[in-house]
Amino acid sequence: MAIFAVYVVVNLSLNMEFGYTGIPNFGKVLAVGGGAFVAAAVPGRIFAGMAGIEGDYIRDNIAVVSGVNAWLVDNTGIGFAVFFMTLGLAAAAGAGLGLITSYPVIRLRGDYLAITLLAFGESIRVVGNNFSPLVGGTLGVQVPDPLSFLPGEVRFPVATIGLVAIAACVYVYSERTMRSPLGRMLRAVRDDEVAAGALGKDTIRIRTRVIMVSAALAAIGGALYAFYAGGVIAFAYDRASWTFWPFLMILIGGLANNKGVLVGTLIFVTLRKVIIFHKDSLAPAVPFDVAWLDFLLLGVILLVVLLYRPQGIMVEKPTPTIPHGRGPLRSGARRAFDLLFR
């Protein structure tokens, strides 16, 4: 459920970018990793400074973070304040990364844009691995737990509820934004950029903004994941987990439909859990290591979706901002049906 919440945040940001605006961001991992690295590098140092814990943050990381967690038991308020500040900082870092990536590539289109963003996405892991003062290089770092004050057995459920609540906020923000004149304009830019330009839309600026806001949301997702996992190690931020899987999820769910994002993410996360838990039972039946089943089956699912239902489970539909007051009035039951199934 917690993983679901994190992926919902990342996927909503990808859907805003790819589903609504048509920017094929194959470098989603850049912003996610950026957010996670902020969560790994910043709050621990702040807490250590406030608590007066000695030691090099990277070299003596485990000792320092244990000390911080012990200190946080008595300083819950500061813990939460720094937690939310970190999310804000991660969002700012994400937006900054978005601006940096969009600057040179914004005039590229389609495949060229995708491949350039893919390259940007690769860079974050390389930086994290090789620049140890940031997130401890190949050894990684621990992330302090703002919920240290809770007893061990309730900490996990509470963290999950918190993540789901934050994901719900991002969902509401995203949905309201996309059901506004802005969402309509983004779909117009996606459908025909030149025509949108001729009707007075500064498409370059719009695309830059979308990349920035979307990167900020993805960075929040990354930071949440870092707090949830309790540690950050650079190689965990690879293109499969944080670029290709989000694409798979929104393709399953349906592009440009935030409800589809929820459905697609739920299906994906559940399927993956099932595969991971049960793949060993297939060991006698497959002539290779079952570890590969994870990727293989997900690949098969992607192919099936693209071949038989390329629009995804939930299709894109018009998202009127406010009713125009003409046209057939629909009954309440009909509206409920439409809401759920169209």
Binding site: Y173, R176, T177, S180, P181, L182, G183, M185, R209, V213, T321
Partner: peptide, 8 residues
Amino acid sequence: GESFQNAP
């Protein structure tokens, strides 16, 4: 409503 600040 076409700006990110006002849209929500």
